[in-house]
Write a protein that binds this DNA or RNA. Structure first.
Length: 156
DNA sequence: GCCAACGTTGGC
DNA sequence: GCCAACGTTGGC
């Protein structure tokens, strides 16, 4: 089992939105970055842990989710009216994949980026690297444990 | 294959 | 809203 961090702009899709989804589960559509895609396609497994991160507005880790379905073609890449439409992707050779993610535990309080920057135990996180923009990032086990500890929750 | 132009991300 | 950092595109 692995651990990940996934970014979302809360104005587009927030933790509240995830909790409102049927079975608290959503298709993580719209990833259009090759490095992020490769993580999902090649390394994501059912049961992996996900730090759910709100970017831009009060940037924070706001909860923990689970991968409940491994990679499959992202249907939005074929929908012409979708903001995620990719005219260069062919149905017989999909370019982009998605996974299904289920809400597990909301943090009692958002764990802010500024707090994380101040904590030595998470100093190596990809999230904190200068200029890091990757929307799907690996998280090391000790980083996962420390983030959950700082948030005041216990999650395997 | 280089790299300038362009578009996007995301902290501030 | 600004803009630096980064990724992608496409001419050559």
């Amino acid at each position: 089992m692995r651990y990940w961090l996934m970014k979302t702009e809360p104005d587009v899709f927030s933790w509240d939105d995830l909790e409102r989804c049927p079975n608290r589960t959503t298709m993580w559509e719209g990833v259009r970055n090759y490095q992020a895609r490769n993580f999902m396609r090649d390394e994501f497994g059912v049961g992996d842990g996900v730090l759910f991160y709100h970017s831009r507005k009060n940037p924070s880790v706001v909860g923990v989710a689970r991968v409940v379905r491994a990679a499959y073609p992202d249907p939005t890449q074929f929908v012409e009216t979708s903001r995620y439409f990719d005219p260069r992707s062919a149905p017989d050779a999909p370019r982009w994949v998605t996974v299904d993610v289920q809400a597990e535990r909301r943090f009692p309080e958002p764990l802010t980026l500024s707090r994380l920057r101040a904590e030595r135990g998470v100093a190596g996180m990809a999230l904190l690297a200068p200029g890091s923009r990757l929307s799907v990032q690996p998280v090391r086990p000790h980083e996962w444990e420390e983030v959950c500890r700082l948030a005041g929750v216990t999650v395997d």
